[in-house]
Structures are given as structure tokens and as C-alpha cells.
Design a protein around this nucleic acid. Sequence first.
DNA 1: CGTAAAATCTATAGTAACTATAGGTATAGG
DNA 2: CCTATACCTATAGTTACTATAGATTTTACG
Lengths: 142, 142
Amino acid sequence: MLTIGTLARKTGTKVQTIRYYEQIGLMHVPGRTSGGQRRYYDHDLDRLSFIRHGRQLGFSLNAIRELLALADNPKQSCANADSIARKQLLQVDQRLLRLKALKKELKRMITDCECNRVADCKVLEVLRDHSNCLTDHEAIGA
Amino acid sequence: MLTIGTLARKTGTKVQTIRYYEQIGLMHVPGRTSGGQRRYYDHDLDRLSFIRHGRQLGFSLNAIRELLALADNPKQSCANADSIARKQLLQVDQRLLRLKALKKELKRMITDCECNRVADCKVLEVLRDHSNCLTDHEAIGA
DNA sequence: CGTAAAATCTATAGTAACTATAGGTATAGG
DNA sequence: CCTATACCTATAGTTACTATAGATTTTACG
């Protein structure tokens, strides 16, 4: 019998976040003590770990919801899980590209900036000048 | 005299987003036609480009607000702008590390998964098993 | 057993950065 | 002049939490 605080500590999740996961139907509704406090079993801990691990891997809660549904029905084909992971990998690659470009530009901003007045500050100049950056207006992926 | 739509097209911003920037005080309040429509000057376009560029570089709207304030007072020292950029670089480096680890794990999931039934699907297995991942419970940076 | 601190409870609101919708008005082109 | 397109406001929704207030429960100690 685990309290919500124990679950939180073991998975690095905030207590509120666990309640939130229950509210949106990601975590099962747990039993309660006579006083109304939630008590969990080990399988709840496993489920929460699965969710948190998925989040760390960048999966959205919806993707995780799908993956959990798959994991709950072990007789299906795993093509779905595979396709979710592949979609994720594509997104990760795009984010990596953007971040690398960003890092380069930030470094340029910083190393170039040895001035004293804002008037000729490279940091601001780089922001003013769009010419060096990704030309397409793609989404600013979070 | 530019319409809001033109500004939007030229910067790859949604019209609503421009109005939102005005609402939160990032964009100046523009003049209006007799009919009540917003009309902009080139300096508004510049300001919006600056904002969007900052966003593409991963700066938060608050950071951009600070940078705009600096850019508006060209007599100050640029140490502030520099420190904002440096903070940003640190964050970017952290995100890069996480994303690289993530990519590795996603690839492992995908290449290992040649099964047919969910029962032995590597994708789900990897999610179940936390042992290979970042051990600390750090924030799932967006 | 009594008490006090720590943990838990619910409900609600706030965060970031937009995005979408509904219902109505303005403007530009033919 | 008419109509299609663009624009207007106001409000609500999105994602994934996080924070707060005020009340109740549980646990640990003496």
C-alpha cells in the first residue's frame, strides 16, 4: 500500500501531477482509506513510471495514452507502437536540427559581444537581422 | 501603411498572435483606420521580426521583452543582453543533451522492434524499463 | 491516549504561448 | 454597387502541468 507521496518520490513526479493524471484518465482510480486518502499498489507505480518515462522521451500525453492502451492488450500487432515511436523520432530529429542552429547563433552572439554600449551590441543586432537564420517560417517547436 | 495580414505574412506569424502581442504589450498599439482596422509602419514590422526571431532562437516572451527594452535605450551597457543570451545558451545545451539521449533510445526502440505481437514489443518494453535512461528526475524541458 | 507536525484532501485559478471560434464590420476589386 | 476577402472583438480552448487556500487525516512522539 503506497501513499501518493511515495509514488511521487519514487517517480520524481509532483503529487498534484499524479492527481491530474488520474483526472484525465491516464492513471487508474485508486482505492481510498476510510479517511479518503489514495492508496496505491505496485502496478500503479509501474504505470506511473511508464508515463513519466514516456514524457521524458518527449511523448505527448495522448501518445502515451495510446501506448498504454496497446500495452494493456498484449495480443495486438505492435505496428502501432512502432509507428508512434517513428513519428516521435522524426520530431526529435527536427528539434535537434533547430537547436543546433540556435546554439551556433547564440554562440556567435556571445563571442562577438565585447562592446560596452547597447548601441553596438551584437546580441541585439543578431536579433534584428533575420538573414542568417532558418528562412522558412516553421513552427517554433516547444 | 501595412495591414495586420501583411505583417503576418511577412513574418510568418498568425494574425491572432500579433493581436496577442499587442495585448500583452510586446507590440506597440498601432493606429487605426476610420473603420477601426489596424495599420502599421515599417518599424512595427521590424519589431515583430525581432520578436519572432527571438522566439525562433528559443527566447521566452519575457526574455524578449527585456531585450526590446534594452534595444529601446541604446545608451546602457549591453551586459544585460549578453547575460540573457548566455543563460539561453546554457538551456540550449541542456536540451541538446536530453534530445540526443532521447534520439538514441528511440532508435533502439525502433530497430529492436521486429516482433509482431505487442506482448514482446520492444517499444513498450523500453518504456517500461527506466534503467537505461537519465537517472535524475529533472524537468522534462519543453 | 493526546497532541502536533506532516501529509493528504478538494476546488479553483494561474502559467506560457498561443490557437480557434462565433458573430459581426470594413475594405478592395471588378 | 456588390461581393469576396480581410478584418474586428470577445471568449473559450489547448497542453501539461503548478500553485494556492483552507480543511481533514495520518503518523509519530511522549
